[in-house]
Amino acid sequence: MSNKQNTLFGNMDIKTGCDIVEIDRFRKTDKSSLLKIFYESEIRNSRPETLAGLFAAKESCKKAFNSLRWHDIIINKEKSGKPLLSINKKQLGKNAVLSSDLSISHDGSYAIAIVVFVVKKG
């Protein structure tokens, strides 16, 4: 059994992270502290819901990889609206990300994000 798993995954690994945050907390934040977390392009024309979602996404990435800092993660939107995640590979050490997926949602007063990485262990 254990052998089979080895052949299936080899030296691969899955890492996940999720985070939930209250939207209200982004109604009063000033720009200087937002820029400590986000890139200018990320927060342009953003509602509190979006900011909370982005924050949750970044926080979940940080949960998956402890070594990531805020500005190692940048999130864009595809035309369809699906978030597109890119991270700074330098900070991952010997690991290599083969694939990643991110999903963000909000309802009522909370925003939530979940991220999955498929990692090749170095």
Binding site: Y39, S41, E42, H71, D72, S86, I87, K90
Partner: peptide, 15 residues
């Protein structure tokens, strides 16, 4: 361009 920049981390630009 600002569009390019919006997809790159600081480290990405450096690289």
């Amino acid at each position: 361009s600002s569009k390019q920049l919006s997809k790159m981390t600081y480290d990405g630009i450096t690289k």
